[in-house]
């Protein structure tokens, strides 16, 4: 009979410790992310209602309903439109301007000014979304600051620009709130990425006579690609999940239809109207949209080809 001799390499030992340290994190995700996702999927295949004690298996009926019926006047199609318009209108300008601001801050010679501006940009990110939306509700009021500034810029008097009334203006208002709240967060991420680029590369470029513009396009931007991909994915996912701003606006009298993003429709369908099965189906569709878009962004950008 052959005796088995167990051998342990250093890598295996390290891997075991690594596994041990990641178990709490895995458990956390299993309980608070994976379990809800799988549970939502099962619920989406039932006609579960909030107040009923029992539910029936309905297969894909909820999914078919969402794409064929009006969901009691608040169709899923309208929510898809509102979410995509909000996402495109917010995350593209946010990523571009966050990058420009980060480059601007890195170029500032005065560290104090740079630190102050970083802090100023980042401060709104620490506010709760509800507080931010409430502040902006006051600013967007017909007698508020935004309307007054609009009158000043347009050289008009007492005109109500309908920031919370007109459908298009209402959409723009929600974009402004989100942009204001999250731009600082992404500026900090870009600054971290910029700081990781070795200064020697810039020095070599300067010695070779490269202009600032040329350096930005040929060195900074390519080397910042991994950060840019990360920021764009995070920004896009944040925008797809937007909720508080739209919710607060509608609670204070703004029309729901133009800004009825998917998350808000999920909330009204599931929490207000108690149709948990249908709301779960919407959640699963949103999850799939986010998954596909993230995969596409990763595929298109090919982040691993950046080496210093």
């Amino acid at each position: 009979m052959k005796n088995k001799i167990k051998t342990y390499s250093i890598e295996r030992k390290q891997a075991r410790w690594g596994l041990l340290f990641t178990i709490p994190c895995l458990l956390f995700f299993a309980v608070f992310s994976f379990y809800p996702i799988i549970n939502a999927f099962f619920t989406s295949l039932t006609n579960r209602q909030a107040l009923n004690r029992t539910s029936e298996w309905v297969g894909l009926d909820n999914y078919v309903y969402l794409f064929t019926k009006s969901n009691g006047g608040f169709s899923f199609g309208n929510s898809l439109r509102a979410t995509l318009e909000f996402t495109l209108g917010t995350f593209i300008p946010m990523v571009v301007i966050a990058l420009l601001l980060a480059v601007f801050l890195m170029q500032l010679r005065s560290t104090k000014t740079a630190k102050f501006l970083e802090l100023a940009y980042y401060t709104p990110a620490v506010l709760s979304s509800v507080v931010a939306a409430t502040i902006w509700m006051i600013l967007f009021d017909p007698r508020g600051l935004v309307n007054q500034i609009s009158n000043l810029l347009m050289n008009t008097t007492g005109r109500d620009f309908g920031w919370l009334v007109n459908s298009n203006m209402l959409q723009v208002s929600t974009m402004i709130v989100y942009f204001w709240k999250y731009i600082g967060y992404f500026v900090i991420l870009f600054i971290t990425g910029l700081a990781a680029i070795p200064p020697g590369i810039y020095e070599a470029a300067t010695v070779d006579g490269s202009s600032r513009w040329h350096t930005f396009w040929r060195i900074t931007l390519p080397l910042l690609k991994p950060t840019a991909v990360l920021v764009s994915i995070m920004a896009m996912l944040q925008c797809l999940k937007t909720f508080s701003t739209q919710y607060m606006f509608t609670q204070n009298g703004a029309a729901r239809q133009p800004i009825d993003v998917i998350t808000m429709n999920i909330y009204y369908t599931g929490i207000r109207n108690g149709r948990l099965g249908r709301a779960s189906a919407m959640s699963i569709i949103l999850f799939l949209i986010m998954l596909v878009l993230t995969y596409l962004q990763f595929s298109v950008s090919k982040t691993d080809d950046v080496e210093y």
Binding site: G72, G73, F74, G162, V165, N166, S167, A255, R256, Q257, P258, Y268, R272, N273
Partner: peptide, 20 residues
Amino acid sequence: ANSSEIQDLIKTAVEAVMLQ
């Protein structure tokens, strides 16, 4: 059973004519 849903619909109709 669905009075709040119906109220939301009237709200949407009123907002549509008043605001949009």
